[in-house]
Amino acid sequence: GVGETMPFFNQESLQQRLQALIDGARESWAYAIFWQSSSTSDFATPSVLGWGDGYYKGEENKNKRRASSSSANFVAEQEHRKKVLRELNSLISGVQAAGAGSVGDDAVDEEVTDTEWFFLISMTQSFANGNGLPGLAMYSSSPIWVTGTEKLAGSQCERARQAQGFGLQTIVCIPSANGVVELGSTELIFESSDLMNKVKYLFNFNI
């Protein structure tokens, strides 16, 4: 398994663990994020969870959710998202060697879905211990599993409400060594010990 063959904590190994977690799952998760804790052995210093890495898989039934695609708001929002993506794309392409994976305009001009956008803006977020779903999971040392539009919308956590606004129906945060693993889906997925065990196996490593 991945956990046995990759003993070291690095970006590549983290990405493979996130992939292994949702590519092999029966449920259709749209993404997995590892929120990395800044904490050290000094327990007096408050820890912050920041972006460690993420794997975006996408939604299975994307076409079902395109009801409002002709509204003016939708068009304006898409223009904004594509503009941001275009800028990010040129920044990334600019630092890569010529021909080494620059992304063409076709990909940028394709609709940027709500789930993709939620994943992208997640990269700008961080959570103090006890704040937001990931921070709360870390603070309580127990998994948080929120299924259903109403539960997400009614959550005290801004991130859960934001997820619901972008069409997600399930969001899960599972604490692990040095951070929190978060998964999101546009489907209704109910709590399973299978996923918890997988996270325990794949992410309980020490830096």
Binding site: Q11, Q15, Q36, G50, W51, G52, D53, G54, Y56, G58, L85, L88, N89, L91, I92, G94, V95, Q96, G101, V103, G104, D106, A107, E110, E116, F119, L120, M123
Partner: peptide
């Protein structure tokens, strides 16, 4: 871009590259 931490930059590059693959294969 140098202000963007390495982890996010790598994740972003990967996301954009995979998005391109999804669009091409669609």
């Amino acid at each position: 871009l140098s202000a963007v931490p390495q982890a996010r930059r790598a994740s972003l590059a990967r996301f954009l590259e995979r998005r391109k693959e999804r669009v091409v294969s669609a």
